[in-house]
Design a protein around this nucleic acid. Structure first.
Lengths: 143, 143
DNA sequence: ATAATAGAAGATAAAAATGTCCTTTATTAA
DNA sequence: TTAATAAAGGACATTTTTATCTTCTATTAT
């Protein structure tokens, strides 16, 4: 469904969101451990998300990643779009470039509904919401 | 959503299904052209599907690929499972190996429904059904 | 100011997915 | 029985994705 990169991105964002609520900043190493992802790899991913404004960061001692109020309102759809693009939401299920209503692939209409469900699900899912359950140990980001 | 391999596989299967209805067999080259896919690559894919019994084939002159009655009843879910495995249907949305009801990832329940929708959609979609619309030029397998 | 810290950025490496070529084997028509 | 045909199978090449390492830059505390 999502690329590995995107899976890491979502997990990292949820973790950062939880830590940000108390005004803390989190370092790469801590994030890597918390979500069980390769350190240098999520570093890259977060740099990317940082450039795109989905996460905030500060260099130097006491620095690290964090989420401003606004960023913790961002949806999973925002993250997926930033990392994997909108192919999942708008692309043809069979990979046809010119598939559309007028000239549909065989599974076009079946797929349309499912795609919309996925989009709505991801659009409704706000990063900030997840951190509560995570804090209560009701959900997990590892293994 | 699906791997490229899987997209080609589905497109090829639908094309073969349509040609099989009149008892014809179709060669690799014709299939490659019809679905606009790399010839040697779908050759590999069809060999794989053939070994797994999802498509039938015969060597030699007048040989090629075709579908027996039974095979044209196969679902998209069967093809996806054969090529991409069941990760899409059963795997965790965030890539966690041990994600489950007791120990869910943050998006576990949201994902569950969507996954089931996808599975039901693909399970209901039988290869044979698509060939009718394809024949009437109501749907397309290229570009 | 300076040293220590931590992310940013560029380069490189490994693995997986995708795509191609060549030889072998089975089948058929003549 | 032979020559032509077409899939099967093995090997190889390319591209994309995933992962790692090193150097540079900004920030902070002292």
């Amino acid at each position: 469904m999502f690329s590995k990169t995107c899976e890491y991105a979502i997990r990292a964002m949820i973790f950062i969101a939880q830590r940000s609520k108390t005004g803390n900043r989190v370092g790469i190493k801590e994030i890597a451990k918390a979500i069980d992802a390769p350190e240098y790899f999520i570093a890259k991913i977060l740099q990317d998300l940082s450039r795109k404004g989905l996460v905030q960061s500060l260099k130097g001692p006491t620095g690290g990643f964090f989420l401003e109020e606004e960023s913790s309102e961002c949806s999973l759809a925002d993250i997926v779009t930033a990392i994997d693009g909108d192919k999942l939401f708008t692309g043809c299920g069979l990979g046809l470039k010119n598939c559309n209503e007028k000239r549909p692939c065989p599974i076009h209409s079946e797929f349309k509904k499912v795609r919309e469900d996925i989009y709505n699900m991801l659009e409704d899912a706000r990063i900030g919401e997840f951190s509560k359950q995570l804090e209560k140990n009701l959900t997990f980001l590892k293994r």
